Simulated assay, not measured.
Amino acid sequence: MKITNETKVGALTALAITLLILGFNFLKGKSLFKTGNFLYAKVVQTKGIMVSNPVLINGYQVGAIYDLKAKSKNLDTIIVAIKLNEEINIPVNSIASIVDNPLGSARMEISKGNSNIFLKKNDTIPTMDAPGMFAEVTHQLTPVVDQVKMTLRTVDTVLRDIHDVFDPYTKHNMQDLVANLNRISAGLVVSTASIQQMLNQQSGSIAKSMDNINSFTRNLANNNDRINGTLTNLQTTTDNLSRADIDGTVNQLRQTVERLNASIEKIDSKDGTIGKLLNDTQIYDNLNNTTRSLNILMDDIRVNPKRYVSISVFGGKSKDQYLTSPLQVSQDTTGTRR
């Protein structure tokens, strides 16, 4: 049977179309027959992921997106078929999430769990909606924007309050306050100059005080030996005092005071001789009478000496009466007693 050229062209065309379809699907990551290790994930938002987009674990591509299919006409859930390049042990508590990239294509990342049980072929892996970069930035900026809005409202309120407070009277008070601040600043300048003068290394009072302190410390250093000797003597004195029988001395002193008090009590009483001399008025009267008699005797001897000492060749004793009272003492202008 002879094959015509038209048949040959038709067969070649069909073969070319078939190869084109197979090559296109191969480039998309799909083969003519569904073979290999597949996993499935249910997502709500695909975030622009396409067939043949990579599937990564810890940044390493372990497979690609094989197919996307809506579970229902409402598009509530989309089933993503994942074809793994090789057999990989993925824990059953691992989580898959779609990460969008505004500068490139979206990808699916699988965060490995810690379970010892692994997913099998055609199992469904749990998913989690991961926020995109812009969503994360927006989420981070939202509190900042709210704070800025609150700050602007507060600033607006403060400005209105300031506008209400700054009436002409208040402005005048503010001017007076600024004038007072200027005077205070001038006073601070003067005070600073005075402090600078005090801190002057040549003529400042602080420098003189430091010189006096240095002189004092120098004198202490020069008299260090004397000070040490004085301290040694003081230490020796304190040691002697610590070794002295202070309690015995105090007891002896107490006994002496008690004896002295007893003696004073005896003197105050009329039992002893000294007490009688001090307290008996009769002794005072006797002494007073004795003194008076002695004065009379001395006056009588002065007035009538012949009565007591008689030296006479022809005459006899004086027969004048004895004195019975002291003579009146008189003095002349020269101060001589008569």
Rank of each mutant, 00 (worst) to 15 (best):
K319F: 10
D268K: 14
Y66W: 11
T333G: 05
Y308G: 03
Q328D: 13
N122S: 12
Q235E: 06
T13N: 04
I274R: 00
P326D: 01
D285I: 06
N251T: 14
I21T: 07
I125C: 01
S111E: 13
P91E: 02
T127L: 03
T170D: 04
G104N: 05
T127V: 07
T273S: 06
K208A: 11
K69R: 08
T236M: 14
L84S: 00
I246R: 05
I110H: 00
A81W: 04
T273H: 03
S325R: 09
P102F: 07
I90C: 00
T127G: 02
R307N: 10
K2Q: 13
D123Y: 02
L20A: 14
L323E: 01
S52G: 00
E136P: 00
E136S: 12
A106M: 01
V92T: 12
N222L: 12
N261D: 04
S94K: 01
I184T: 10
T290I: 15
T230D: 07
S52C: 03
V155Q: 10
K276N: 03
P305I: 02
F38R: 00
S31R: 05
V309S: 04
S215C: 02
V51L: 02
K112H: 05
N5H: 10
Q282W: 05
T324V: 15
N214M: 05
